[in-house]
Design a protein around this nucleic acid. Structure first.
Lengths: 336, 336
DNA sequence: CTGAAAGCGCTAACAG
DNA sequence: CTGTTAGCGCTTTCAG
């Protein structure tokens, strides 16, 4: 599979290979005639520019690294799709790595991507980072995080307003008449999740509610975790009339457990999520939730990253996007 | 972000940079002493090998291209995750591109990946290819397809046995007493889907059933398509007792339409899918379906691709994996 | 406008 | 075992 190079084309065209290079890369300092002639020849000979060689001299690859905990979570796979498409439209390809919710792996693939000479990396971090190790890496290549986990660190990030999102959720449930609201799946290993919990707590305080928090010791918010936690919860006495989940996938797991426990949603208990993954819109799921503007997060993250690649001295950017209530039918009003 | 190179290390170590190269790349022809000394120095100086430069001379990048129609379909995003993790364990990174179910884009990103000098590409093709254009590309780089779409072409592929899968599905519905089974969402733009339809038709013949086929003119099998087609179907008179969908996502769309039309599943009509995406296991979906062994497909595809990269002259490989019935509760027996 | 030549960071002969 | 050297394919001065 030996490929044809600039030199080959140059030989046939009877020009120096610098000229071919100029024709191909659209340099202005070349006559229209020769450009056309050479471009035609390139096509005939099946010449494909070798971007490795180009990267070598231009000292940039037009490749972005993406580190994502899991592609099995629709929120992340949808985000990944948006990131890839938008980045490609801006001339960048994505090298995707799963961190599998593992801090060590996260660092490992980050180093790997640096060795690959990616121009920048976008990372959805697992949670609270061993920040010293991470910052050694982010110091080497422009990085944008998608999440609020980096809130207290000098890093670029874009995120939905997690704190405000959970306030909206709590206020909504309150407005429906709920007074005992269980916050489900709180994680202390992630700033994002802390902020969500804090949003809930602050609303409780403001509304005069007693907070009820069910903590999770798992480092991911999957359906399985939601199911496990909820099965346990439903098996014991409980007084709450609504469950506010830290993520849609948790809520879907809760539904499953509720189903098996013979508890009907929203008849017996109301249920809310956070993320608004596409499956939450299914009539069988029909989950009231808080929307994360994934598409906007994707484009903003890429834009922010490219800005920093162009101007590495720029100040760190923080972009917090507004969440929105998506009202469906998993919550019902309570008569007081 | 100027990085430290072999030369820098060599200068400090007081050796030639070839020696450093040998130390780093684990060449045997170097004394343990100097290796240790140099490796230590590399770490101290924060040296990261530049894999671009390495690729340049080794004429291979250890990068695989992946072309996938969409990451919003859980079947594909789960497959992508499996591919990435397995490939990385074998020393390869994945450059992922969405073709967005678009033939032209498919070819475009393929060329792009070739320009990127990927060592191989894995592609989940959209459907019937303009094969002439595609083969010009697959001739340039080892390629493995995931799907049976390439069955009639000299290409590598791994796939589930789509034909047999639909036979199993049809036989299962028959065994439940169904005699009027609607095959839902047949597509003629994809060999994979033709085979599924043929599997259904062959079983109909064998079992003495009259085939009922609802064709789709869409080039993807999404929830939206299933919903649209089914809404139309339910609005008109129909006699079938079971709907056999060409894909789980279609079935999920059908459920949605059924729900809105007041048709209960499986009470009023039985429903089956194909793929066994993780969401089909949810109690609210609870879809009887045919399993595709995604993980095995992923590892096999990577293995097959790496074999061909190592030995490009090898014969084309075809691997057809067995499908399996996943019995859940979206189908019910009919009394005759 | 075009050609010649240097070099991006690294590997792989080839000598010593 | 270690150093020297010639490229990998391309861009980019610098001359002409």
């Amino acid at each position: 599979m030996a490929s044809v190079t600039l030199k080959d084309v140059a030989k046939v065209a009877g020009v120096s290979y610098a000229t071919v290079s100029r024709a191909v890369s659209g340099s202005p300092e070349i006559s229209e005639d020769t450009r056309r002639r050479i471009l035609k020849l390139c096509k005939e000979m099946g010449y494909t520019p070798n971007s490795i060689a180009r990267s070598m001299v231009k000292r940039c690859t037009n490749i972005l690294g993406l580190i994502v905990p899991s592609l099995n979570n629709p929120f992340m796979s949808e985000l990944t799709a948006d990131l890839e498409i938008y980045a490609r439209n801006r001339g960048y390809n994505l090298m995707v790595c799963n961190s599998s919710y593992d801090h060590d792996l996260e660092l490992e693939v980050f180093s790997l991507l640096i060795g690959r000479q990616v121009d920048g990396v976008i990372m959805i971090p697992v949670g609270h980072e061993p920040y010293e190790s991470l910052s050694a890496l982010t110091g080497q290549v422009p990085t944008v995080f998608i999440s609020e986990n980096m809130q207290n660190y000098p890093e670029n990030y874009v995120s939905v307003d997690n704190y405000r999102g959970m306030q909206i959720a709590t206020e909504y449930l309150y407005s429906l008449g709920h007074r005992e609201i269980l916050y489900f799946g709180a994680r202390s290993d992630s700033k994002t999740h802390e902020l969500r919990l804090d949003g809930y707590l602050s609303s409780c305080k403001k509304l005069g509610l007693e907070p009820h928090v069910l903590r999770s010791s798992y480092s991911r918010s999957s359906r399985e975790v939601g199911y496990t936690l909820a099965s346990d919860y439903f098996s014991r006495p409980h007084s709450e009339t609504a469950i506010l989940c830290a993520a849609d996938m948790l809520a879907i797991g809760v539904k499953q457990a509720a189903y098996e426990a013979g508890i009907r949603i929203p008849k017996d208990i109301s249920l809310m999520g956070f993320d608004n993954i596409s499956f939450s819109a299914l009539p069988e799921i029909d989950l009231t939730t808080i929307n994360q503007p994934t598409q906007q997060m994707a484009t903003s993250a890429v834009d922010m990253l490219l800005d920093h690649i162009r101007n590495p001295e720029a100040a760190h950017g923080q972009l917090i996007l507004p969440p929105a209530l998506i009202e469906r039918r998993s919550c019902r009003p309570i008569k007081s």
